[in-house]
Design a protein around this nucleic acid. Structure first.
Lengths: 312, 312
DNA sequence: AATTTCTAATAGGTAATTCCAATCACATGT
DNA sequence: ACATGTGATTGGAATTACCTATTAGAAATT
């Protein structure tokens, strides 16, 4: 019978392409890994590895089997996690990834409450853009993601958290600063098109804004690496930007900046935020617990139907 | 590290609920299985099995893990098959299931050609109704099914084979025997509703006919266990029935019966036949090979746009 | 051309695991 | 009380996985 351990050696070798490093990653000696892989090849009756001098190449079958083996090893870990959490639910080390336009504000707002209500859950926080988040989620490098839904992905399961409204942020001296609302048509005007500054490509917020305003990527002179960068730009009177509700609230409560937030209407702009995890993840109960804790903290944004512009 | 072998012991125990029988099924002694399961419980730190006197019950976690283990064991078998077939493609033992209203006629028509072109492929033929076929396919008891599509099922992959037209079969003395076509409206008439005899429940052909004619199941006095039964009924002048093209051709070529086949139009009635296998099945190349062989034999029905009634 | 350096494969020995046969302990039903 | 059927236990044999140390081969360097 095939052994999971041997399969995990193959997975490791496929990822590192080096017997010694793969062995170290598996916490065995290099001869052990070498021998066990040879045994595996003999068991299966197929050559899995082309042992070229100074480079390791997997055969076609070897690659195919390594991919399946990877899935099996992941499932084995899930079984182990399942067993562990069945004894002590809501504990353990949860690898959580959050998109950058959300992470600092979400954590600032909910971190304390989560820590208080789920003291045994150690959250290992990663900040990843959507595409990389999805990749690592499928790869098993992270367990749960918080990002913009919907993300219809086979093998993944989502749980909606809240709808977050988008605001237009302009400097206090800006000519629009006294408007009580902005429509999409107004946003599409040439003037605003040149003024709008967005996040760099890859950020889903940038994609959404670009789609909303029908901008071509070339038309953007400057693109910020983070929302905080955009905040300083706008605050200094340079241009305007789209601001999600949660970061807006954070900025307002910290005061000090010189930004006016104007609601965007016709249509109202929002983004759906939620959890995403592998179907069958042992951490799903944790996701549900987090959902409960977070929604108890977030209803102030969840209602999110304010139409009066907030000015500092 | 978890061992696939131990997990397979748990799977076996879950299915047989008996240490001795499970051990026999795994080809090990009962003490071995007992001990290894105890080891597994210790590894996972959870009780998986309630050892009541005279009965074996899995705990909640035990059941959950047994299900996942089952999936992993299946994947292991697929890896083994993949390795084997990569050496010698289109060989091995293919467990193929075909729905009963298709099996005898399809095999009679294509069996010889398949045997000639794929001599190394040993086909183990099962005859199963749709629901049971899907269950066994997911369970790994069979590898490939031939049935009516579409069957949108997660984890399963399909390949269309041909569209099979449905005909109305009536006795030679029947008052409709000289019609050149029948419309759906005519089929819905009270008279025909009482005369139509269908297969027993569970057969997808019966479902389709029932839906076509908007019949309530109570309105059916007699239901046949197989198409052959229906053939004798209709041939003897008792009622009428729906006949798929393939069986009709078989019956015509064998002559002897006293049935007239009338095409159903407005709308033309047909059913889509195709293969279904687990995504990632090692036998998919076999499916494609079978597809090629069968379509080379079946184009005569595949064109299937005859509108002239065939009479013996 | 010789040497160094990196690679993976091999050899030999040890500890752990897996397994079986025989037996035990404990029920249930006769 | 007894037979029957259950899973658990024991002791020992065979196998397996693993390590350290070494070897062999191929590239890069001198």
């Amino acid at each position: 019978m095939l052994s999971l351990k041997d399969l995990s050696y193959l997975v490791s070798l496929n990822e590192l392409r080096h017997f010694g490093k793969a062995a170290a990653a598996c916490h065995v000696s290099q001869p052990t890994l070498s021998g066990q892989l040879k045994k595996l090849e003999h068991q299966l009756g197929v050559q899995l590895i082309e042992r070229g001098s100074n480079r390791v190449i997997l055969t076609h079958v070897g690659l195919e089997i390594a991919q399946r083996a990877k899935a099996m090893v992941l499932q084995a870990h899930e079984v182990e996690e399942l067993a562990r959490t069945s004894n002590t639910p809501l504990t353990g080390r949860l690898k959580l990834a959050v998109i950058p336009s959300l992470a600092p504000y979400l954590m600032a707002k909910t971190g304390a409450r989560v820590g208080a209500l789920l003291p045994e859950l150690k959250i290992e926080l990663h900040e990843l853009e959507t595409a990389e988040l999805l990749r690592q989620l499928r790869n098993g490098d992270i367990d749960v993601g918080i990002l913009v839904l919907p993300q219809a992905q086979a093998g993944l399961r989502s749980l909606s958290l809240w709808r977050e409204q988008l605001w237009l942020g302009v400097g206090r001296e800006h000519e629009w600063a006294h408007r009580t609302q902005v429509t999409r048509t107004q946003l599409l005007s040439d003037k605003m098109g040149a003024e709008l500054i967005l996040l760099q490509e890859g950020h889903c917020l940038a994609d959404q804004a670009q789609q909303l305003c029908q901008l071509k990527s070339q038309s953007q002179a400057f693109r910020g690496a983070s929302l905080e960068t955009l905040r300083y730009m706008v605050s200094a009177g340079n241009g305007a930007t789209l601001v999600p509700q949660l970061s807006m609230e954070a900025w307002i409560s910290h005061g000090e900046d010189r930004i006016v937030y104007i609601p965007i209407t016709e249509p109202k702009q929002a983004r759906e935020i939620g959890f995403l995890a592998r179907t069958g993840s042992a951490y799903w109960p944790c996701v549900e617990a987090l959902h409960e804790v977070m929604t108890s903290v977030l209803p102030s944004v969840s209602t999110g139907t304010q139409t009066v512009p907030l000015v500092i």
